[in-house]
Structure formats: structure tokens, C-alpha cells
Amino acid sequence: MSKQVVAIDQEECLGCEACVELCPEIFGFDIDATKAYVIMEEGGDEDCIEEAMGSCPAGCITYE
């Protein structure tokens, strides 16, 4: 069984930092690009990732 991988569509990211606030161990924020990025692509807290996906106004977080 392959692990699920979380990703952020950088084109769609609004830079609201909701995912970073919810899951700081999984998501980081690039101040220069004003975009969130993924620190931990796999093995993160699934509940936290799903909550971050639900709170993302751009809907740009994928987890598959």
C-alpha cells in the first residue's frame, strides 16, 4: 500500500495561511512568494490534513 501524499497547487494558493496555522508540522509559508508549501509530504496527521483541506478557501490542497 502506497502512502498518501499531500500537495498544494501553488497557482491556486491565496496565501491565507489557514493550513499553516492548523498543521504547522505539515505546511510552511513562503513569505517572499506569499504561498503555503508542504514540509511533510507523507506521514502527517491525516485528520489535520483533512481539516486543512476543508478550511482552504482556494481548495488547492490535495491528499491522494
Rank of each mutant, 00 (worst) to 15 (best):
F27R: 03
L14I: 14
L22D: 07
L22M: 08
C19M: 07
E25P: 00
C16A: 14
G43K: 10
E46V: 06
P24T: 01
E50F: 04
E11H: 12
C16D: 15
V38Q: 03
G54Y: 01
A58Q: 11
F27Q: 04
A7G: 12
M40T: 10
C16T: 11
S55M: 14
D9W: 00
M53A: 07
A58L: 08
E17N: 05
A36N: 07
D32P: 01
Q4T: 09
Q10C: 00
P24R: 02
S55E: 15
E50N: 13
V20A: 10
F27P: 01
V6R: 13
A36C: 11
A7V: 11
C56T: 09
G59I: 00
D32H: 05
P24Y: 05
I49T: 08
A58Y: 11
E25T: 04
D45L: 08
D47Q: 08
E21L: 07
Y37E: 08
E11P: 06
T62M: 03
A36R: 09
I26V: 15
M40R: 09
M1I: 07
K35P: 02
I39E: 11
V20K: 12
I39K: 15
I26M: 01
G59H: 05
S55F: 12
G44F: 00
E17H: 04
P24Q: 02
F29E: 08
C13I: 06
I31S: 15
G28L: 11
D47Y: 01
E50P: 03
E51A: 11
Q4S: 13
F29M: 06
E50M: 13
I49P: 06
E25C: 00
